[in-house]
């Protein structure tokens, strides 16, 4: 194959030899501002709402979700956190699927997908989801509506703090996705339309500290 040919061309052009050591890269630029937890919660909520999402702080996510999902088909992730909050056991909520095809079919027909979030970023209104046995990729993607539950202390100031906590996300999971607002496009005449391929509606529930087991 062309591997050696291309690497040889690169080295010749750069005047380098195989396995030649490299100079130190410029230090990564990580600046973490000091933001109080209350201010982070407020910023997260404001940013999600600015993106036409819904965000609120609640001490009873179960009650909120119970009324939001009445009469709808719902799929929830296998996160022990959702179970501890009593969300997975709500009537009408399907959870605990571990088979890929079965999960995909369930997500393709569900009205709402409920997930936890590993982190949230306050300054951009972003959810951070790492794929795992507890957290499938499709639940936050296929249904037209996504509800995410994140506990207060998981709200980070922003990208810099995220990459200082997870300097190499590949060690945790095959997939980390940052979700900032509902799916959208402006490909026709620059007119904003929400819900193209992903969920058109997103709700972020911030729960009280310590609720996470």
């Amino acid at each position: 194959m062309s591997r050696d040919h291309i690497l040889h061309r690169v080295r010749t052009a750069l005047g380098r030899s195989p396995s030649q050591p490299i100079p130190d890269p410029p230090p990564a630029r990580i600046r973490i501002p000091e933001v109080s937890l209350d201010a982070r919660v407020a910023s997260l909520i404001a940013q999600v709402e600015a993106l036409a999402g819904t965000a609120l702080e609640t001490s009873d996510p179960r009650a909120y979700i119970a009324s939001a999902i009445a009469g709808k088909t719902v799929i929830a992730c296998n996160s022990p956190y959702l179970a501890a909050c009593g969300i997975s056991s709500l009537p009408g909520v399907e959870s605990g699927i571990t088979d890929r095809e079965q999960l995909r079919d369930a997500c393709a027909t569900a009205d709402i997908g409920i997930t936890s979030a590993d982190y949230a970023l306050a300054d951009t209104g972003t959810l951070v989801l790492l794929s795992s046995p507890a957290e499938a990729r499709m639940i936050s993607l296929l249904p037209p509506e996504h509800i995410a539950v994140v506990s207060r202390e998981r709200i980070l100031s922003g990208l810099d703090e995220l990459f200082s906590i997870l300097p190499n996300p590949a060690e945790q999971s095959s997939s980390m996705v940052l979700i900032t607002g509902p799916s959208r496009t402006a490909d026709i005449e620059q007119i904003l339309v929400r819900g193209v391929h992903g969920p058109g509606r997103i709700t972020v529930l911030v729960t009280e500290q310590g609720l996470r087991p």
Binding site: R100, S132, S174, S175
Partner: peptide, 16 residues
């Protein structure tokens, strides 16, 4: 809206 950080195929236990 979406930033995906993808490293390799799904790992043991990951559902999809």
């Amino acid at each position: 809206v979406y930033t995906s950080f993808l490293s390799g195929p799904r790992r043991p236990g990951e559902i999809d």
